[in-house]
Design a protein around this nucleic acid. Structure first.
Length: 470
RNA sequence: GCCCUCAUCGUCUAGGGGUUAGGACACCACUCUUUCAAGGUGGGGACAUGGGUUCAAUUCCCAUUGGGGGCACCA
């Protein structure tokens, strides 16, 4: 049987990398086995859900290249159906009305905690007399699920058999007093109705699964197979959250991370192919993926490794492709003067030192405007040599005389001048770089000179000579 | 507090009853080089602790400790 899986984000925020991680495993598993991957938006909490967030989540998933085969389904479209199922449990005597107000519940919970007693629901409304019910009939009422005695267990694909005493589970709400379903009910009903065969989700849901198993039993449905994968942690080993930095998938896009690098990196956070392979393209991931190779331990999100991997992916890109991606960056935008040839040359020499797309903007400023200042470290090191003015002046003259202004001609002119002066070429190269770029580091100087062109180079050398006089 | 769960370098991980415990990121050094990167070479760095089982345990079992998650009319 072909597997049917799903990713079920709730639109209360952006697409979190943790959700993307789960989506990726579902997607890989489904692609590998030729099944169906469904997108379901869990927007039952009307107050907290935002349709703009649904759009962002959809956009993020698309950017990652995790295409779904069916959906998106919206749970908010199905409120009557969940209510029908909740009523069914009520009829079967597996659920009961609860008239307790949130305030009452809160108060009793506090009391339970202060008395160090178990803090689960006290079943106050389970055995109300008709008289009491009559008294409460105008109050809004929720439906709770009655937890039967005994043990609840299921086979998790990673953890094997997990078991829990049902005494430790409270009679949870399945239908809120406003008539909307709670998470566990909606989830079970939808997984059943959509024919989900494999639920692959984060370990934070492991405890929910016991409740869901009980619901499947109450309905008489066969539960899907479950796999609870470990979670992604921040550097302090707590649940990854905003205070650790970017957690939204789109944040990484903005930073100039490539989706294929993020996918590769996320795949390796809690999974490995069993050998030393690390850089794996989408198709290779699909081919190598298997659920039983998932790790059992939570993993720390190491941004440094992501950036390294991103650099590897950038190096694989052709100049044209890389340039297009750089130009598509929303912020910060790079200048994009004509002709395209000019931009391609810059991309070509900057590529090996880029780790993020945004690095292009950071590293390329001097290709678009004359430097307005010189790095002070460089000034101390290269501009304070007494002979520097004379040398740069000679360089300027030699460059002006060049008929062919290409890397070979430029390099030989500089080296020739150096040997005539009886100095090392570096003593010319460093001050030239500083004069042309304002920086002490960067790509091959001769390439920079060629790309900038004779006119700009001469102009900048003159400016530097002026600066040296003052 | 109760419940679930996990435990190999700083981080991601491979491995598994007998290994010099492998790789990657990061770090350091050297090298290449006009510089910065990239590349190349090398280096430091790990089986949480205590009990079993066994000829042998990092690997299997138990406990402890530590970490993570959950305990909502959130999902």
């Amino acid at each position: 049987m072909k597997p049917v899986t799903r990713i079920a984000p709730s639109p209360t925020g952006f697409l979190h990398v943790g959700t993307a991680h789960t989506a990726l495993y579902n997607w890989l598993f489904t692609r590998k086995h030729g099944g169906k991957f469904i997108l379901r938006i869990e927007d039952t909490d009307i107050k907290r859900s935002d349709s703009a967030m649904s759009d962002v989540i959809i956009e993020s998933l698309k950017w990652l290249g995790l295409k779904w085969d069916d959906g998106p389904y919206f749970q908010s479209d199905k409120f009557p159906i969940y209510k029908k199922y909740a009523d069914l449990l009520l009829e079967k005597g597996k659920g009961y009305f609860c008239y307790c107000t949130p305030e009452e519940l809160e108060e009793r919970k506090k009391e339970a905690i202060s008395q160090k007693k178990t803090r689960k629901y006290d079943r106050k409304c389970l055995d109300l007399s008709d008289f009491e019910k009559e008294k409460l009939k105008d109050r809004p009422k929720a439906i709770r699920f009655f937890i039967p005695d005994g043990k609840v267990s299921f086979e998790d694909g990673l953890h094997n058999k997990v078991e829990r005493d049902s005494q430790d589970i409270e009679d949870f709400v399945i239908l809120k007093s406003d008539g909307t379903p709670s998470y566990n009910l909606a989830c079970v009903v939808d997984d059943y109705e959509l024919g989900i065969t494999n639920v692959i989700r984060g370990e934070d849901h492991l405890v929910n699964t016991f409740k869901q198993i009980l619901l499947y039993k109450a309905f008489g449905w066969k539960p899907p197979e479950f796999v609870h994968h470990p979670m992604i942690l921040g550097t302090d080993r707590s649940k990854l959250s905003k205070r650790h930095g970017a957690v939204s998938v789109l944040d990484y896009k903005k930073q100039g991370i490539l989706s294929e690098a993020l996918v590769n990196f996320l795949a390796l956070l809690g999974w490995s192919p069993g050998n030393d392979r690390e850089i794996m393209l989408r198709d290779e991931l699909i081919e190598l993926f298997s659920l039983d190779r998932l790790s059992l331990t939570a993993s720390v999100f190491d941004i440094k490794k992501l950036e390294w991997m991103n650099g590897e992916y950038i190096k694989k890109l052709g100049d044209e492709e890389l340039l297009d991606r750089v130009l598509n960056l929303p912020e910060p935008r790079t200048p994009n003067p004509e002709p395209r040839e000019y931009m391609l040359k810059i991309v070509n020499i900057l590529k090996p030192r880029m780790q993020k797309l945004t690095d292009f903007v950071k590293f390329s400023d001097y290709f678009f405007e004359d430097p307005t200042q010189y790095e002070s470290e460089g000034v101390d090191k290269y501009f304070k040599i007494p002979e520097v003015s004379q040398r740069l002046s000679l360089v300027k003259d030699r460059f002006s005389e060049l008929k062919e202004f290409n890397v070979e001609a430029i390099e030989s002119a500089v080296r020739k001048l150096a040997s005539e002066l009886g100095i090392k070429a570096a003593l010319l190269i460093h001050p030239i770089r500083l004069a042309l770029t304002g920086k002490t580091g960067g790509p091959s100087l001769f390439h920079i000179v060629e790309i900038l062109g004779k006119e700009a180079v001469i102009r900048r050398l003159k400016k530097a000579l002026l600066f040296l006089k003052t």
